[in-house]
């Protein structure tokens, strides 16, 4: 089941993105890599090398940072009919931000006094103030942010990045999600949804900075590197014999390749720490 992908086809598919050349090489080298679905539409000028998304649940309100609401000052303390909802706990009237706003940069972006340093470089920042939610409950609202739907079935931002831009590694997850304490938004952050499974991200608990603590079973605590090498050879020998007897299969071959990749990276070398 060799995927028939010419270099040209693949580069076209990838829109000439940065990872494209490297990915083509990886696919040529590893002909069994499952290439079921990548973006196949019009070319996009993909200049980004990395996409890092910080989702700061529980951070300060936008109303205190980038989004001044003069009307709040005007109607301070009032409870107009449209907001006089029965709430779970006792609530007061409308509350204006207690912080001072000024305009910064060439475009006069509003930034509050809480963020003087960010205000000094605001021309390099894109502030979007037009977003809204229609669901005030944490879990569905998070899902809405990460996937565009309150139903937790659709692909996450990372999965779309992987689908649209590709990736230049062949043995690591499409993208990683760092969740302090291992909790967070459940699967909404890493889900590939209806996109093929290779666009699935992996969650790591980043309360731990050491890779050994972050990634379970990263190291073999029982055998020396030489023994691990010999054991893996023995496993591969059995797997190859089984594969030959059964016939070509994506899963069998994927598992063989992953074992190999895991052994090479964990056995010999040193894993980078989160700080690096």
């Amino acid at each position: 089941m060799t995927p028939h992908l010419s270099r040209r086809t693949l580069l076209t598919r990838m829109g000439g993105g940065l990872g494209a050349a490297a990915l083509t090489d990886l696919l040529t080298r590893n002909a069994n890599a499952a290439v079921r679905g990548f973006y196949n539409g019009p070319k996009l000028p993909a200049r980004a090398k990395h996409v890092i998304m910080l989702f700061l649940a529980g951070g300060p309100s936008h109303v205190d940072m980038f989004d001044p609401k003069p009307a709040l000052e005007k109607y301070k303390g009032q409870r107009p009919g449209s907001v006089d909802l029965r709430t779970e706990r006792e609530t007061g009237g409308l509350l204006p931000s207690p912080f001072q706003f000024n305009k910064y940069g060439r475009n006069g972006v509003d930034v509050s006094e809480l963020l003087p340093k960010l205000a000094s470089v605001i021309d390099d920042v894109c502030v979007i103030r037009s977003m809204y939610t229609f669901n005030p409950t944490h879990t569905p609202a998070r899902s809405l942010y990460h996937t565009g739907s309150i139903l937790a079935t659709r692909p996450s931002t990372g999965a779309w990045m992987s689908y649209g831009l590709g990736t230049d590694n062949d043995n690591l997850p499409a993208f990683v999600v760092l969740t302090p304490g291992g909790g967070g938004s459940g699967g909404s952050l890493s889900r590939s949804g209806f996109l093929p499974a290779e666009h699935q991200g992996i969650s790591f608990n980043c309360s731990e900075a050491e890779p050994e603590k972050m990634i379970p079973d990263l190291r073999n605590r029982w055998s020396s590197a030489e023994t691990q090498r010999a054991d893996l050879d023995a496993i591969q020998q059995l797997n190859h014999a089984f594969g030959e007897q059964f016939g070509p299969d994506d899963y069998l071959e994927g598992r063989i390749n992953l074992d190999q990749a895991v052994e090479t990276s964990a056995g010999g070398g040193r894993w980078p720490t989160l700080a690096e």
């Binding site: 699935q200 379970p216 598992r255 992953l258 895991v262």
Partner: peptide, 17 residues
Amino acid sequence: RDLTTSALQSLFVLNSS
């Protein structure tokens, strides 16, 4: 279940207690 084949599964098989 959406089946995945991941490096973390290999780590479990090769290294877990």
